[in-house]
Write a protein that binds this DNA or RNA. Structure first.
Lengths: 219, 219
DNA sequence: CAATTATTCAAGTGATTTATTGAATAAAGG
DNA sequence: CCTTTATTCAATAAATCACTTGAATAATTG
């Protein structure tokens, strides 16, 4: 193989992988699957995609070795192929949020609207983890909590939040977290809780970021 | 801004960045610019692009905050906007080479053809760096060497290699490096040198990877 | 075994991306 | 000031991508 042919093959292969990621619907699917496996139906519920369209996107991801699938009864469950990819995806989002001014601005406006601008970083969380005056709250759907959650967190899905309000003390600071920086669940939780007089902040990132960091630390 | 709108804005912004990278010509340009700034003409010489086409690709990269430009006389010099992006690009290439089977295969076949399969990693290089029996050889064009090179390397551009052969000792092991894992210069150097009876291996990666690692270590 | 359900397939259309071509700028030199 | 040179702009055609629609599979249930 000549030098030019080799280069063309390598850059085309790399571009193919990038093309698989270069689509908003697929990025959202990737984020969904970072929380754990989901059926096509599960993906559809959480997005604004039609079934056929979601299936097509999932197949693109599968053909590019980003997700894998497993069949069970009627359902086909999709999940991210490995943690290496999750690390890459998180690097991409982190870069985008900190270096692309427009994205940073959109993110901050969203958090501002929900009184969630004063967020907590993972570093800070690690330092607070043994503080008994802090309550760590996972506001994702309970299936996702059950699939994996930050050590010490309690599960309070958004659907239960309003009716459970009285269970929490107003003296204890609440840290809410969800799927990651692009997920709005924690923002909504912060809005509701702070409007009801609770001391609350959101975690900058989400469960997948915590998980990746934990993987690295235990090596 | 509603939750759905916010998500759409974030994922669309992320996808836009990914689209800018999801093209073989632009990936090659990014790799070129990792070696230092280049004019449009400079980019054209190193690729198979026409001038107008290269200019268009450079503008896509510029509009996505990946490269910046500076004007000097007739020329417009382009360079990567910061080291953050270089880190991301290297994460992408590293992931692709180790997780995408087809790319790994193409890379290994290329190295096999050039007797360069037995390559040296950056880790190994660090350990050998003080060994007087090892000669570290930068085979990129001399402009790129002058812009920055691995400490202790000598510059032997491919154009000079054949006529300089007699200057090197056959007892001393040679480590050749170039722009990175996708660059064929070091492979070609290994082929020539080993056919002439030298002990030679190539570095797995290239100058940009060494530079990124060095940045991190000095922090 | 027929009906139901989750998913995939296939075809078609509109939108986006890419490379090419030739003309237009803009800076430098004679 | 005219010519040369490097780069950019604008218009086009070909290729690819994304979403929709409706039908086809394949596993499960009554």
């Amino acid at each position: 193989m000549k030098g030019r042919e080799f280069k063309d093959a390598m850059y085309e292969g790399l571009a193919k992988l990038m093309r698989a990621i270069a689509n908003p619907a697929r990025l959202e699917i990737i984020e969904m699957l970072s929380q754990g496996e989901k059926s096509v139906e599960g993906v559809v519920e959480a997005t604004s995609l039609t079934v056929a369209n979601a299936s097509q996107h999932l197949q693109v991801l599968k053909n590019n070795n980003i997700v894998k699938s497993r069949k069970e009864g009627h359902y086909v469950f999709y999940s991210l192929i490995n943690n290496e990819f999750m690390g890459l995806y998180q690097h991409i989002t982190k870069y985008a949020v900190s270096e692309i001014a427009e994205l940073e601005k959109t993110l901050n406006r969203q958090r501002d609207d929900n009184h969630a601008l004063n967020s907590v970083s993972l570093d800070e969380l690690e330092r607070m983890i043994n503080d008994k005056n802090v309550l760590l709250m996972d506001v994702r759907p309970s299936v996702e909590y059950e699939f994996g959650h930050i050590t010490g967190a309690i599960s309070v899905p958004m659907s239960d939040l309003l009716c459970c309000l009285k269970d929490f003390s107003k003296d204890r600071e609440i840290i809410a977290y969800c799927r990651g920086p692009f997920c709005v669940l924690a923002d909504e939780a912060v809005k509701i809780l702070s409007e009801n007089g609770y001391k609350v902040r959101r975690l900058d990132e989400g469960y997948p970021e915590w998980k990746m960091r934990h993987l690295h630390e235990s090596n």
